[in-house]
Amino acid sequence: MTLIATQSLTKTYGGRVTALTDLTVAVEPGIIGLVGANGAGKSTLIKILLGLIAPTSGQVSVLDIDPTTEPAAVRARVGYMPEHDCLPPDLSAAELVTHLGRMSGLPRTAARERASEALRHVGLYEERYRPVGGYSTGMKQRVKLAQALVHDPDLLLLDEPTNGLDPAGRDAMLALVHRIGTEFGISVLVCSHLLGEVERICDTLIAIDGGRLLRADNISAMTSATDVLAVEVSEGTEELAARLAELKLPVARDGRLLLVPLADDGTYDLILGAVAELDLPLHRLDQRRHRVAELFATRELSHA
């Protein structure tokens, strides 16, 4: 099954402002990161996926349903967490999520049960009976996530879930999203303008810029064969480089660092052995994963 597929999707507002241009992607179930700068067209794409706005041209399907012709069928199976503040301050989280569960078609008792389950899953316990107006930003984000989860959707669309959170809150939210995607069996599309954030939890990454597709790929395909070991010795860098070359390890220099592609655990032993043999003061030996950002950086440069 294809989770989300678009074909030449284009959206222009009033014939002048172009939000999406000729976007063609197809992604499998899993955790999908949708990255792009503010105004890149992320929210527009999400609204088209929900059937809230119609594309100017092109085709789109979500869970093999066309949201332009059957928006209700799509929305019944999708949970949406908007970017902006959307919680009435005088209701308690339990009341709000129960009500929204009923709006998704859950019977009264089921809505109440699922609301407290969803709130517990996002980490809200006794505080769910207090008015939302008194919540911290982190708790409000959790309520927004819970209301998207209450009707047990097959796909969650999260628009900037880490917005306004402190670093610890961001980590907790990302861990929660990761858990939903892996343990709950619900596919997730996470929107963010921070690549470093989503790349940690995603299987697939879609990068858009100015309404155009930059790249859409499996994250392992993007980062495979790019793990390297960085070795730093306080002195004798040249000697070590020569020694490693003798051991048939392709060494690259990066300033004071030696970069050795990581083939398997044996690579560590070879390097450590060489360092010990030459009796060099080892300063650092660590695994360095190529950031997806670097892939985009080189790509964007080649565009220019």
Binding site: L50, L52, P71, A72, A73, R75, A76, V78, Y80, P82, H84, D85, C86, L87, P88, L100, M103, S104, G105, Q147, H151
Partner: peptide
Amino acid sequence: GVLPLYFSRP
């Protein structure tokens, strides 16, 4: 701003 939560439902 709760309306998006209604309108993203069926």
